[in-house]
Nucleic acid binder design. Structure first.
Length: 646
RNA sequence: GCCGGUGUAGCUCAGUUGGCCAGAGCAGCUGAUUUGUAAUCAGCUGGUCGGGGGUUCGAAUCCCUCCACCGGCUCCA
C-alpha cells in the first residue's frame, strides 16, 4: 500500500500502481469523468500512469490550467492524426498547447492547406475523438526512436530526438498516430467534444527565418460544445473593442495608402486625446524634475555611427537622406537618445548637477517589416514619451524608483490593472556579450530588483533578456484579443555614455562616466492610445474624452436655450457641443450613445423654464434634472480626479 | 520579408457556371416634420469594383503582377 496525499492534506491508502483515474473513481464517478491529468509531486502525469510510491497528488480537470494544457496538447495529437490520415506523407514539427488552444507545425510537402480545408480536418478530428482512442505512453530507446522516424522519413522529429539529452524518450500512440512526446495526455480522445481550427499560418522551423517554413495550424478544443460557443462569442465581443475598428468609428485616427503604410494620421479627436495625455505626463514630469528638450527629426549619419545604431540597424531603417553636398547623409531618427547625448555633451557638468533628466515627445521612424504593421500598436513613425536620465551609478536606484512611480501613477490614473512587469537581466552563462563593468551591472540589477520589491511590483525576472548595454524593466499590457504589447520601459545604459564619451566632474575633480537611463512611461503615444482604446472600449474617462457633453434640444424652439447652456459649459472649461439636427430626441440620444459621448443634456420647455438640464450618462441612462451649476460642478469634480491622485 | 486570407460608394455589406446602364442599408445633400431618453418621412447625390497588365466578342467575376489590410511567423532601437 502507498500513501496518497490530496490537496486538502488528507491521506488515503491505495495499492501500489494506482492511477490518478483510479483515485478519482474512488472519490466519485463524476470526478473520474472529468479528470484530464494528474499532478504527482508537482509533475503533471497521465491520469492513467501508475503511481508506485507515496505521493502528493492533485487531480487536474478543465478548471485547472494544467488540465486545459493536457486537453490541448492531446488535441494537437488528434489534429496531427487527422491531418496524417487526410494528407498522407505529412511530416510533423512541434505541436504544443498554448495559452488559448494549441498548434501543430506541419510540413505538407508541396501541398497548400487553405482555410476552407480546415473544416474537413475538424470533421475528421471529431470522428476520431468519438472513437475513444486511448493515449498509450511508451518508453523507447533513443536508437529505436530514431529508427522509427527514419523509416517514417520525418526529419524534424529526427532532429528533435538528436537534440534530446539522454534519459527516457517517450512515444505516445493514439489511433494511427505515434508521436515523440513527453506527455502527459488525456486518458482517451473522447474528452474532446468540440473543435475549432482557428487559423493557418507559416512558421519557420525552430523559429529560424533561414530554415524551412512549415504550415502552422492553430486550433482550440473544449470538453463541451457549449464552451466553444461561449469562446467564439467572447472573441466576437473582443473584436468590438479592437482599436482599429473603434479608431475608425470614433474618428480618432486613419491611414492613407498615399501617405504610406504604418504612418498614422491623427484626426482632430484623436489628436485632442493624445494632447491631453501628453499634457498630463508633462505636468507629472515637471513635478518630477524633468527638463523639456526639443530635437530635430533627422540626424547626421555620423551621429548614428557614434551611437552604434548605424552599424547595427542601418540596413533596416528608412534609406538615408542625401543633400546637395556630395557624401553628406542624414537619417530619420530611429530614437532620440543620440540627440539627447549631444545635449548632455554641450557643456561640462558637475556631479552636483546630476541627475539630469531630459524629456521630449520625440517622433521616431523605423522601417518595420510590412507584415509586422498593426493598427496603432506597430507603426513606422511614432512618438515616444522619451526621457534620458544622466546620473551616477549610485543614483540608479532612486531614479528607477522615481520612474516607476510615474508609470504607476499613469497606470492607476487610467485604470490599467492587468499589466505584466518584467525585469530583464544578464544571461549568467554568457557574460562576454555585455558592455559595462561587472560591478556596475550587478549594482544596477540589484537596484532594479530591490526597487521592484519596495514598490510592491509583482515583477518577473528573466535572465538573458537584458539589452547588451544594460538591464531593463518593461511594462506589458494585453490588448482586447489577449496579445501582449510592451508599453512603458526603463533601461539602464552603460554603452552610449561610453560611445559619446560623456562625463561629469566628480568631487575629486576627475572626469567620471555617467550612467544613462532611457525611459518611456507610455512607450509610444500610438501604442498607448491603442491599448487605452481597447481597455475602455472607446469610453474614455471624462478628462480625456474629446467630447464631454452633447446638448440635445427637443426641438428647434429650444436652440437659444441650448446655446445658453453651451456658453455656460464652455465658460466652465467643459468640452460641449449641440446636436442641432432636426431629429427626434430618441435619434439624437442613440447617435450620442454610439459616439460614446459621456454626457447628454436634454433640454426642452421644462428645462428652459427652470434653467435646468436633464442629464443622461452614456451607457447608464437618465440621471435626472440638474441646474446648470450643479451639472458643471459634477463634471468638474469628475475631471478633477486626475489632478487629485498622487 | 515569409505563409494563409481579404480588398465593390465615406461606413457595413449584396453581387462568381464571365453577359442588359454594378445594388442595398447607413452616412452626406435637399425638402417636409418641431419632435422628451437608443433609428421620422420623401427625394437626390455618390463607385477608376485596390492599382497595373493579360485572356475574351464581352471581366467586379478567369490569369499574372504590384499595393494595402486581416491572422500568424520572423524581427523589434
Amino acid at each position: 500500500m502507498i500513501n496518497i496525499t490530496l490537496p486538502d492534506n488528507s491521506v488515503r491508502q491505495y495499492e501500489q500502481g494506482v492511477t490518478g483515474l483510479d483515485i478519482a473513481r474512488s472519490i466519485s464517478e463524476g470526478l473520474a469523468r472529468n479528470v484530464l491529468s494528474v499532478k504527482v509531486n508537482g509533475e503533471v502525469w497521465d491520469a492513467t500512469r501508475k503511481i508506485n510510491s507515496d505521493a502528493r497528488v492533485q487531480l487536474l480537470t478543465w478548471e485547472d490550467a494544467e488540465g486545459k494544457e493536457t486537453m490541448w496538447h492531446s488535441s494537437a495529437h488528434l489534429m496531427a492524426e487527422a491531418i496524417e490520415q487526410l494528407y498522407p506523407g505529412s511530416k510533423f514539427g512541434i505541436g504544443p498547447a498554448i495559452e488559448n488552444g494549441f498548434y501543430y507545425d506541419i510540413d505538407l510537402g508541396d501541398r497548400v492547406l487553405t482555410e476552407a480545408e480546415l473544416a474537413e480536418v475538424e470533421k475528421r478530428m471529431l470522428q476520431l475523438a468519438r472513437e475513444k482512442q486511448q493515449f498509450v505512453r511508451e518508453e523507447v530507446a533513443k536508437t529505436e526512436a530514431l529508427r522509427y522516424f527514419t523509416e517514417k522519413g520525418d526529419e524534424y522529429k529526427i532532429e528533435l530526438i538528436g537534440d534530446l539529452q539522454d534519459g527516457t524518450i517517450t512515444f505516445y500512440k493514439s489511433g494511427t498516430f505515434t508521436d515523440l512526446c513527453r506527455g502527459p495526455h488525456l486518458p482517451d480522445t473522447s474528452f474532446i467534444k468540440a473543435v475549432k481550427l482557428t487559423s493557418i499560418a507559416g512558421a519557420y522551423w525552430r523559429g529560424d527565418e533561414k530554415r524551412k517554413q512549415l504550415t502552422r495550424v492553430y486550433g482550440i478544443t473544449f470538453p463541451k460544445a457549449k464552451e466553444l460557443e461561449e469562446y467564439l462569442a467572447l472573441l466576437e465581443e473582443a473584436k468590438k473593442r479592437d482599436h482599429r475598428k473603434l479608431g475608425k468609428e470614433l474618428e480618432l485616427f486613419t491611414f492613407s495608402q498615399n501617405v504610406g503604410a504604418g504612418l498614422p494620421l491623427w484626426l482632430p479627436k484623436g489628436a485632442q486625446l493624445r494632447e491631453r495625455l501628453e499634457a498630463y505626463l508633462k505636468k507629472v514630469q515637471k513635478e518630477a524634475g524633468y527638463q523639456p528638450v526639443i530635437t530635430p527629426h533627422i540626424g547626421n549619419v555620423n551621429l548614428y555611427k557614434t551611437s552604434g545604431h548605424f552599424e547595427k540597424y542601418g540596413s533596416d531603417s528608412f534609406r538615408p537622406i542625401t543633400t546637395p553636398v556630395e557624401g553628406e547623409m542624414f537619417f530619420l531618427k530611429p530614437m532620440n537618445c543620440p540627440h539627447h547625448c549631444e545635449i548632455f555633451a554641450h557643456k561640462p557638468h558637475s556631479y552636483k548637477d546630476l541627475p539630469i533628466r531630459y524629456a521630449e515627445f520625440g517622433t521616431v521612424y523605423r522601417y518595420e517589416q510590412s507584415g509586422e504593421l498593426h493598427g496603432l500598436t506597430r507603426v513606422r513613425g511614432f512618438t515616444q514619451d522619451d526621457a534620458h536620465i544622466f546620473c551616477t551609478p549610485d543614483q540608479i536606484k532612486d531614479e528607477f524608483k522615481g520612474v516607476i512611480k510615474i508609470i504607476m501613477r499613469i497606470f492607476k490614473a487610467l485604470d490599467f490593472k492587468d499589466f505584466i512587469t518584467q525585469i530583464s537581466l544578464r544571461d549568467p552563462n554568457n557574460p562576454g556579450k555585455y558592455i559595462g563593468s561587472e560591478e556596475n551591472w550587478s549594482k544596477a540589477e540589484r537596484a532594479i530588483i530591490e526597487v521592484a520589491e519596495e514598490e510592491g511590483l509583482n515583477a518577473i525576472a528573466v535572465e538573458g533578456e537584458a539589452a547588451f548595454y544594460g538591464p531593463k524593466m518593461d511594462f506589458m499590457v494585453r490588448d482586447a484579443l489577449g496579445r501582449k504589447w510592451q508599453l512603458g520601459t526603463i533601461q539602464v545604459d552603460y554603452n552610449l555614455p561610453e560611445r559619446f564619451d560623456l562625463y561629469y566632474i566628480g568631487s575629486d575633480n576627475e572626469k567620471h562616466r555617467p550612467v544613462m537611463i532611457h525611459r518611456a512611461p507610455f512607450g509610444s503615444m500610438e501604442r498607448f492610445v491603442a491599448v487605452l482604446i481597447e481597455h475602455c472600449a472607446g469610453k474614455f474617462p471624462l478628462w480625456l474624452a474629446p467630447e464631454q457633453v452633447i446638448i440635445l434640444p427637443i426641438s428647434e424652439k429650444y436652440q437659444n436655450y441650448a446655446q445658453k447652456v453651451l456658453s455656460y459649459l464652455q465658460n466652465s472649461d467643459i468640452r460641449a457641443l449641440i446636436d442641432e439636427r432636426s431629429e427626434k430626441t430618441g435619434r439624437k440620444i442613440r447617435d450620442a450613445e454610439l459616439r460614446k459621448i459621456p454626457y447628454m443634456l436634454i433640454v426642452g420647455e421644462k428645462e428652459e423654464l427652470e434653467g435646468t438640464v436633464s442629464v443622461r450618462r452614456q451607457g447608464e441612462g437618465d440621471l435626472g434634472t440638474f441646474t446648470m451649476e450643479a451639472f458643471a460642478a459634477r463634471i468638474q469634480e469628475e475631471v478633477a480626479i486626475i489632478h487629485q491622485e498622487q
